[in-house]
Amino acid sequence: MNAAFSGTGTLTNGTPAWFSGEGSLADDTVYLSAPAAGAGALTVVTGEPYPEPGEFPDFERVLVDLLTPITYTCQVLPPSDDLLQAALPLLLVRRDGGGLDFNAVTDTANMRVVALSHKRSDSWRLARQVREAVLACPGTGNAGVLVDWCEEITGQLEIGDLDPLNRSVEVAFRMMARRQFP
Results as ranks from 00 to 15, higher is better:
S117I: 07
P89S: 09
D148C: 04
D148P: 00
A104H: 03
S80T: 05
D122N: 07
L88G: 11
I159Y: 06
L84T: 12
G160C: 15
P79C: 11
L83G: 07
N142S: 11
D122P: 10
D107W: 12
V113L: 01
V147R: 00
T106D: 01
L88I: 11
E132F: 12
A86Q: 14
A104T: 09
D82Q: 14
D101W: 00
V105W: 08
D82H: 08
V105R: 10
A109F: 05
N166P: 12
S80H: 07
A109G: 05
D122H: 08
N103E: 04
N142A: 11
R95V: 07
T106R: 03
W149A: 13
D101A: 02
M111T: 06
Y72M: 12
R125C: 02
Q156L: 14
L116R: 03
A87D: 10
V93A: 00
L84K: 13
Y72N: 13
T106N: 03
D101F: 01
P164L: 09
E158I: 14
A115E: 01
L126P: 00
P164A: 14
D163W: 08
P78N: 15
R120H: 04
Q156K: 12
G141P: 12
I153Y: 10
V76D: 05
G139I: 02
G141D: 05
L165Q: 12
L84Q: 14
V113E: 02
D122I: 05
T108R: 06
E132T: 08
I159M: 14
D81P: 07
G139V: 02
C150K: 01
F102N: 14
W149T: 11
D101P: 03
R95I: 06
L90M: 10
F102L: 13
W124Q: 03
L157P: 10
E132M: 07
L162Y: 10
R95A: 02
V145F: 02
S121C: 07
A127D: 00
V76L: 08
P78S: 15
L88C: 11
P79I: 08
G139Q: 04
S80M: 08
L88K: 12
R167T: 09
R112T: 13
R95K: 06
V147C: 05
V105C: 07
R167W: 13
P164E: 09
L84Y: 12
S80F: 02
V76Y: 13
L92C: 02
L146F: 13
K119A: 15
L91G: 01
L116S: 11
A136N: 02
G144A: 04
P78H: 09
L88E: 04
E132H: 03
S123N: 06
Q156A: 09
T140Y: 03
G155L: 07
V147G: 05
A109L: 07
L165H: 10
T154I: 15
S123T: 06
A127W: 00
S121F: 13
G97I: 01
C150H: 03
G144T: 01
V93N: 00
P138L: 02
T154Q: 15
K119H: 15
R128W: 03
R94W: 09
C137S: 05
D163A: 10
A127L: 04
H118S: 15
I153C: 09
D82L: 12
R95G: 04
V114C: 05
N166F: 15
N166C: 15
W124M: 08
G98S: 10
D96K: 14
A115N: 04
V134F: 03
L146D: 12
